[in-house]
Nucleic acid binder design. Structure first.
Lengths: 132, 132
DNA sequence: CCTAAACTCTATGGTAACTATAGAGTCAAG
DNA sequence: CTTGACTCTATAGTTACCATAGAGTTTAGG
């Protein structure tokens, strides 16, 4: 199958697929006489794996690592566990940051009565005050 | 004062300051004979305003808009309020996304007993299964 | 006075994971 | 045999910077 069909089957864009190839996430592939990329059902699975990982916000570098690990079935999978653990940690951190941000933004929002002028706007005033 | 001192006073990097200037967030400025940027205390305040906004994750484009609004003191500040409101909304959305992600990552993590091999790794197996 | 260090300048490339575009080639149907 | 759909490569753009190169400026010390 050609790239357009693969894209439809997996829900990836054509460009994404070419991008994954450039980033070495898809194995080297065959080309047609006219230099079109040719794929089979194994690629569909590979791509779905990638998509699944991306939906978990794993980076392409991390995914590449997982693919490599996957090719060494006998090895321990501590590295996999570690990767997911550190990912969970990062997400938790980011959530905390955003929650802090949310609080600050709410406070800022409350500093302005809606019907004010720019000159009197509590938001702009607050933003102008030096903070720690 | 020159750019290095400004950077020290505000906690911005020298590159950031030059970047803000290129992005029209800092008013046009004087130069010394040797073509060095020269600043005064007003710039310190401007830059602190920008920094404060950035700490709230406002984009440079949004900050530019706020600065422009700030220069029209008589106008209503509904636009300011709207900007902050939509920002709060975006942050809330992102927090929800990340919390979903967190749940998925936890579930994934639980699918592998730590002492497994790559071949049996529940994480890799889960990632290989097609999901909705 | 001269030199070396510290500072500044502009311009460019890199980051992440794509999207969008241009300009060219390939293929299938009518 | 031409038109439209598809594909190819290469390049620029996104965001808010950081890092670097190569050059010029300023300042302090000997």
């Amino acid at each position: 199958m050609k790239i357009g069909e693969l894209a439809k089957l997996t829900g990836c864009s054509v460009q994404s697929i070419r991008h994954y190839e450039k980033e070495k996430l898809l194995a080297s592939l065959r080309r047609s006489d006219g230099n079109f990329r040719l794929y089979d059902s194994a690629t569909v699975d590979q791509l779905k794996f990638i998509k699944h990982c991306r939906s978990l916000d794993l980076s392409l570098a991390e995914i590449r690592q997982l693919i490599e690990l996957n090719q060494q079935p006998g090895m321990g999978c501590e590295d996999v566990n570690r990767m997911i653990d550190s990912h969970i940690e990062q997400v938790a951190l980011r959530i905390n940051e955003l929650q802090d941000l949310q609080d600050k933004l709410m406070a800022l929002r409350n500093s302005c009565a809606s019907q004010s002028t720019v000159k009197e706007c509590g938001i702009l005033q607050t933003l102008s005050v030096t903070q720690k």
